[in-house]
């Protein structure tokens, strides 16, 4: 267990994030007093009920949002502005619709100053690595949902970020495609271990992918209420590992904690 501080790749130190409501209404505290650390090379999943503020946590880590109080530490240094060491995979489609798949993957390299001709071969290589060789010239609207996610994955990984922030990246996919993508993610991750902060509302996904699962309380003012080390052996196959007794045990234990929060979140959503 790493302490929040020097050695962690990414750490939240007593972070609170409050939104000023539009029109001077009540303030909304999305994240309250959260302390959480992710070690280098560790895969951490955060689960919580819908609308509890999981995405806010990720946006804080990315530097897209500023914390109201507390600090976000990256490699031991407080984060100021955008997190340049992190890659972010969004829940919604984030590809540039006017760029082909190849140009989308190459975008980060071009932003960093690479010439189009230099970036293209590397982008082609990454597209092939996510299984999209031959689809270089397609525009996002000509690709299926799963293919678009692969492009987004390649777009993020080509920049070789140290920290991967993933916001329910596969939630829009059907179950078969999702499991394929999860396996591919694990394969890519184990080849070159990055620190991963993976947000999901799917507990099975969280367990099968992670080293550690953190359970968040129902919003508003969400904060971690439980942490579980996942001691399942790697390499894993996400479809098969769900059938092992240890998986079922872990699922049971985490669900005990999560269920109450889900019910709370559900009750709030009804109002």
């Amino acid at each position: 267990m790493t302490a929040a501080g020097a050695t962690a790749a990414l750490a939240f130190d007593a972070v609170t994030c409050t939104f000023a409501a539009r029109g001077g209404g009540e303030r909304y505290t999305a994240v309250r007093d959260t302390t959480l650390a992710i070690a280098p090379g560790e895969f951490v999943s955060v689960v919580g009920p819908t609308g509890c503020g999981k995405s806010t946590l990720l946006n804080l880590a990315a530097g897209l949002l500023d914390a109201s109080s507390g600090t976000v530490m990256v490699d031991g240094a407080p984060l100021d502005g955008l997190n340049r060491r992190a890659g972010y995979m969004f829940q919604a489609d984030a590809l540039m619709p006017w760029r082909s798949a190849l140009a989308n993957v190459a975008a980060g390299l071009e932003f960093a100053g690479a010439k189009r001709a230099e970036a293209a071969p590397r982008a082609r290589e990454w597209l092939a690595r996510v299984g999209l060789a031959g689809f270089e010239d397609r525009y996002p609207h000509q690709l299926s949902g799963g293919m678009r996610k692969r492009v987004a994955l390649a777009q993020m990984l080509i920049l070789d970020p140290e920290i991967l922030l993933m916001d329910e990246p596969f939630s829009a996919l059907d179950i078969q495609t999702r499991q394929l993508m999860e396996n591919e993610l694990l394969e890519l991750w184990s080849a070159n271990r990055k620190s991963v902060l993976f947000i999901t509302h799917d507990l099975e996904e969280a367990i099968s992918l992670s080293d550690r699962v953190v359970v968040l309380a129902a919003g508003p003012g969400t904060h971690p209420i439980g942490e579980f080390a996942i001691d399942l052996p790697r390499p894993r196959d996400v479809a098969e590992i769900r059938l092992t007794p240890r998986f079922v045990e872990l699922h049971e234990a985490i669900w005990q904690v999560l269920r109450g929060e889900v019910l709370k979140g559900y009750a709030q959503a009804k109002h």
Binding site: A62, L64, L82, R84, A86, G87, Y88, F90, A92, D93, A94, L95, M96, P97, W98, A107, G108, F111, A112, A152, Q155, M156, L159
Partner: peptide, 24 residues
Amino acid sequence: VVLANARMLGASRGQLLRHIYLPS
């Protein structure tokens, strides 16, 4: 989301203008 993604990919203000705002 497209805007935030481009920022995370390292686009500067000028690059956002050229690669996101202008095409849109």
